[in-house]
């Protein structure tokens, strides 16, 4: 028997090995997701070697590409810089368009809310002096505008047109000292006249006995024939009363930021 084994040692070993391999393989087929101890050990051993090889390959590749092979780098750099500038410029324009779209959507919503026909306009210039508060809009007689038409934005009253030429008009802002409009306090319905004072407004002719509080909203009363009723003018920011005075002294902060006017709405059909 021993002689037989010795005689066929090699073929037997081959068969045993194949059988073992098949057994191991068939047993592993049933437990496929598990990692064997052998596999773990091999992976553990291989890991530092792989990492080391990988990082040294990276280092060599970086060295070659960034320090030695620089034939097109400068040209590529220039191209990327110019592309970057172009893209930044495009991004700026897009964000400006987005903001403009937002403003115009608000204006459109206001236009749809109003019962009166309106005309949108763009502010193209400001007053030439520091004394008067006026702006120029890009619509004029040719667009059906004329002196006296009220101008508004979603936040409230802007002012009224005082000069009109073919393609542009001058709008007297509510904050100008020569501007005056009939208003009422929304909460208590107290009446008065709002006059411009440069940056703020004053509520004139508000009787001392009238109920006016800080923060009250001031709206147009519809009297005077220029502004329709109910447009926001501003909020009461300061009240000074004196028992001896007939009227109280009221300062109103305008609802509109006049230094940032861009698009406005002109009310064509005046319907107070």
């Amino acid at each position: 028997m021993l002689e037989l084994i010795q005689k066929y040692r090699t073929p037997l070993l081959v068969v045993c090995l194949i059988m073992t391999a098949l057994l191991i393989y068939s047993s592993r087929l049933r437990k496929q997701p598990e990692t064997t101890l052998f596999e773990k050990a091999i992976l553990q051993l291989a890991s530092p070697l792989q990492r080391g090889f990988d990082s040294s390959t990276d280092t060599m590749s970086n060295l070659w590409q960034h320090y030695l092979w620089l034939v097109d780098t400068s040209r590529e750099n220039d191209r990327l810089f110019s592309e970057n500038r172009r893209l930044l410029n495009k991004l700026d324009r897009l964000s400006e368009i987005q903001l403009e779209n937002k403003r115009l959507s608000t204006l459109l919503a206001l236009r749809e809310e109003m019962d009166i026909p309106t005309l949108p306009a763009r502010v193209i210039a400001e007053d030439a002096t520091s004394l008067f508060q006026t702006v120029i809009i890009d619509r004029g007689l040719e667009d059906g505008l004329h002196e006296g038409l009220p101008v508004i934005v979603p936040e409230g009253v802007v002012g009224r047109i005082i000069r009109c030429s073919g393609r542009q008009s001058r709008v007297l802002l509510a904050t100008d000292a020569s501007s005056a409009m009939a208003v009422l306090v929304q909460r208590s319905r107290a009446r008065g006249v709002c006059r411009g004072r440069g940056q703020t407004l004053t509520l004139d002719f508000a009787l001392s006995k009238e109920d006016i509080a800080k923060g009250d909203r001031i709206i147009t009363s519809g009297n005077g024939g220029i502004f329709p009723k109910g447009l926001t003018v501003g909020n009461v920011s300061l009240i000074q009363t004196n028992e001896l005075d007939l009227f109280q002294s009221v300062v109103v902060t305008p609802a509109v930021n006049f230094s940032r006017l861009e698009e406005v709405l002109v009310l064509l059909g005046n319907n107070p």
Binding site: D127, A128, S130
Partner: peptide
């Protein structure tokens, strides 16, 4: 000069004359 003055934003509070 006058046109230049209209281009100065009113946020500057005073404009050069």
């Amino acid at each position: 000069f006058a046109v230049t003055e209209t281009l100065v934003p009113s946020a500057m509070f005073v404009k050069p004359n």
